[in-house]
């Protein structure tokens, strides 16, 4: 495959607490390619949102990037100054968030907010030009009567419309990479289907890469080309979307797959994962999933298993994978 658009290498983001530095993202390496979608899946507290904020350099104090690189082409975003980073945000990488209600400013019109990024990156643009480009951006996300919507305020829009406005804002400067952090979690299913459809169409039109963060394996199956499963700040499995569903390896991935009720089968009981995600200030020794893992053996508690390639293009951080081999042994 060609040179990746974004390469994250050994990223470690920590939060300073009275008890010392607590890692939220702990040695994550990932690649995103042009025109492709990388899905990052995991439950609350697995570090997926902190990872995306780290890429954008938006981690707030007391959090900081402690190690690793975020390579966008030849540039390491992790070492840029804030002023340099402002040139990257919006133009090279844009982001949309979960809450379309709270991520729009209620006192500014939709048009003002959409053109804000254009003004920031192109201060000489005239008002007429800004208006045109803003309306163009609204058209691109299939908002009906964009000329009227341009002058409206966020409260006049439905949740789905607001998320479309967020996407229009993000795409106003044609970024190469869009980071979407749970973009449809707050939306109803029929609206979610519309937004996912829109993201796919826009990707086909523009060739942008997408990092899609979600807890929903259904959304991953709909959208992702490559997938990373995260648990407690680490990537525990990484492969393409097909392989993740057809050949899942890590016990946590299995647990997630078993937990979701499926429309296409009848099971008496769901396969729940026992226990809960450990807090990052109190991680278990060894593999972080071992207290919840039904396959855990003594060696799992001894050291953190590294990501290893189990077949080409499929990496898993588990010494017991594939589980049928270790169960038989």
């Amino acid at each position: 495959m060609s040179e990746p658009l974004l390469r994250i290498e050994g990223l470690r983001t920590v939060f300073r607490t009275s008890g010392g530095d607590v890692p939220a993202v702990d040695g994550v390496s990932l690649e995103v390619h042009r025109g492709r979608t990388l899905g990052i899946v995991g439950e609350s507290g697995c570090g997926k949102s902190v990872l995306s904020l780290s890429v954008m350099r938006l981690v707030a104090h007391p959090g900081r990037i402690a190690a690793g690189r975020v390579m966008l082409g030849e540039r390491d975003l992790a070492s840029l100054s804030m002023a340099e980073m402002r040139q990257v945000r919006g133009r090279d990488i844009a982001m949309i968030f979960q809450e379309p209600m709270t991520s729009l400013n209620p006192v500014h019109s939709v048009g003002f907010q959409i053109t804000e990024a254009i003004r920031a990156h192109d201060p000489r643009a005239s008002n007429a030009e800004l208006r045109n480009r803003g309306i163009e951006a609204l058209k691109r996300v299939r908002i009906p009567s964009p000329e009227r919507r341009f002058d409206e305020y966020p409260h006049q829009l439905s949740g789905g419309m607001r998320q479309r406005v967020m996407i229009a804002m993000a795409l106003a400067c044609s970024p190469k990479l869009l980071i979407a952090d749970e973009p449809t979690t707050a939306l109803d299913v029929t609206v979610q289907a519309q937004i996912l459809d829109l993201l796919r169409e826009l990707q086909a039109e523009t060739g942008m890469a997408i990092i899609l963060i979600t807890h929903d394996l259904g959304v991953i199956a709909e959208m992702a080309d490559e997938v990373a499963v995260m648990y407690s700040g680490k990537v525990v499995e990484r492969t393409n979307a097909r392989a993740l569903f057809e050949d899942p390896q890590h016990p946590y991935t299995l647990g997630l797959l078993g937990s979701i009720p499926r429309l296409d089968e009848d099971r008496e009981n769901l396969l729940a994962i026992r226990g809960t995600v450990p807090p990052p200030f109190n991680l278990p020794p060894g593999c972080r999933f071992n207290p919840r893992c039904p396959f855990a053996i003594e060696a799992c508690r001894a050291e953190i298993p590294p990501l290893r390639s189990i077949i080409p293009g499929h990496e898993v951080a588990c010494i017991c994978a594939p589980v049928e081999a270790s169960v038989a042994a």
Binding site: L217, G218, A221, F245, I260, L263
Partner: peptide, 10 residues
Amino acid sequence: AIPHPDPSRK
């Protein structure tokens, strides 16, 4: 509209 956990139906 329910996203299905099966990439072949994408």
